[in-house]
Design a protein around this nucleic acid. Sequence first.
DNA 1: CTTGCTTATACCCTGGAGGTATGACGGATG
DNA 2: CATCCGTCATACCTCCAGGGTATAAGCAAG
Lengths: 298, 298
Amino acid sequence: MEVRELRYFRAVADELNFSRAALRLGIAQPPLSRAIRQLERRVGVQLFVRDTRQVALTPAGHALLAETGRVFDAVSAAVHRTRRAGQTTPSVVVTAKAGVATELLRRVVRAYAEVPGAQAVEIVVSGYGEQTAMLRDGRADLALIGSPADHSGFDTEHLASEPRVAALPVGHELADRESLRCKDLIGQPMSQWPEASHADRVYWAGRDHDLPTGGPEIHDNSQLLENVALGQTVALIPRSLAEHTPRPDIVYRPVLDASPYTTVIAWPSGSTAPWIARFVQLACTQVVTTVIDGPSSP
Amino acid sequence: MEVRELRYFRAVADELNFSRAALRLGIAQPPLSRAIRQLERRVGVQLFVRDTRQVALTPAGHALLAETGRVFDAVSAAVHRTRRAGQTTPSVVVTAKAGVATELLRRVVRAYAEVPGAQAVEIVVSGYGEQTAMLRDGRADLALIGSPADHSGFDTEHLASEPRVAALPVGHELADRESLRCKDLIGQPMSQWPEASHADRVYWAGRDHDLPTGGPEIHDNSQLLENVALGQTVALIPRSLAEHTPRPDIVYRPVLDASPYTTVIAWPSGSTAPWIARFVQLACTQVVTTVIDGPSSP
DNA sequence: CTTGCTTATACCCTGGAGGTATGACGGATG
DNA sequence: CATCCGTCATACCTCCAGGGTATAAGCAAG
């Protein structure tokens, strides 16, 4: 099976229409039909049931579609990492969400620069949920990831945990309380990241608590806080974020029984590159000196 | 980048010799040289430094070689799983090492058969260390794996832990002791699985204990025990294995501070197929009733 | 210098990927 | 019911890239 065939397959599986898929691929429809037929012949199973009006995936087609992502990720990871390794001064790429843990990252990078023989470090700031994608497809070598992310397929090492606070608009009914509990937030509109899976939503809200969903969807921290200030939503955020973004129109209140916000450093599982081990080790020791304090979760 | 190009690259990287690589690939040498050149041109980096006498990998080549395995695994997983899904009665394939945990597996399979709408279950017995390979390349959907294995890239759920015993030949100097400790075994010839990485060896011997290596290499349990009986080696094995294979020429003695032998059920990380969740859940509940008893580790 | 081993170059050939034109089918529409 | 439109399949052509053979070129060893 060749990558080109898989690209064709995925286009058809996405569009469920040979003509549109061919358009998307930039080829004509007949060669696409033929390529799919040939793929079916080679693998030995039918992937689509198609009459002249309808195209649908067979169970085998569904199975193949589920696997295509891994193949594309592996291939583009190979290309990306090879290209980077081929540069005159290869650098290690670390990605992290804006805001959270950047001061930690700066410290680690400074410390890593001291290591004899260390490459340059390139820090790429990425949007919510994009860190894992960048690790998977090879745009990054290491990532700092917050707790509600999907770590599957990565090796991780725990870096820091910090308590969460609720961000409330000034004048909110809960704003005069010193601290809150998860159950206090039930019934409140609660913002969700757009890409968050169900598991993420549960986790984000604090594991095992039946916190509400359905607030407006937001894409970054400033947008989130803007929505909070406007009274559109409330939000559970890590305490450090609250400390770095004081706003006159928002109050932050600790949520005592929310699951702590944890930051992990992640890298592609099974990587044996020695500098990954060195960087991770450095990050772990740095985090000890950086002391992200706060009461430990009960 | 196409899979064919990667196959060619890997052959050359393995052989470090274009002629032999071409022979292995079943093509002539000139097309292979050209294909590699074209790959280098497409990716934009040099992969090999070659004069007329020597071929060596560049740093970029090393980086690419490290990624090829993931690509091949992903591709063959796609093919295997698609083929299986295309059969008239698709079955779920579970793999496990012979001996250990087979009674558990039988119970789970019986229970799973009761589930409405459940597929047939096919059990494949595989050699040491092969379970993970089968998961990775799609020959299996689920695997029961013993503790010294490399779980990276898989999701796992803990199933059972059991203490380890040392297998000693009758008449061995330690055979008359009721129980042992790891340090008693220092200096004994200790068998290693051939594919075991360094991490595996450490783990297998009981984490953090400086147990010896260098015994004869063995490939399955019966061969291992045969070697023990012949006085060639001693072995640390899970207790259930000892109980299922009583031998007049071998005595088993508990090793109190060896790390327990744990069995986990593993599946490709990120799989969302509902039947995986159902099977795993079933396995976890079954293991509670199967009660693999024994003293918990200190 | 010759021999033997390597990779690179030159050249040819063929299979298959891609294009165009068109057929066959079925739903929508009047 | 007839027409039209959108769909996938078929037929046929073109052309290039992947593969083969022959051979040059480079280097080490004898």
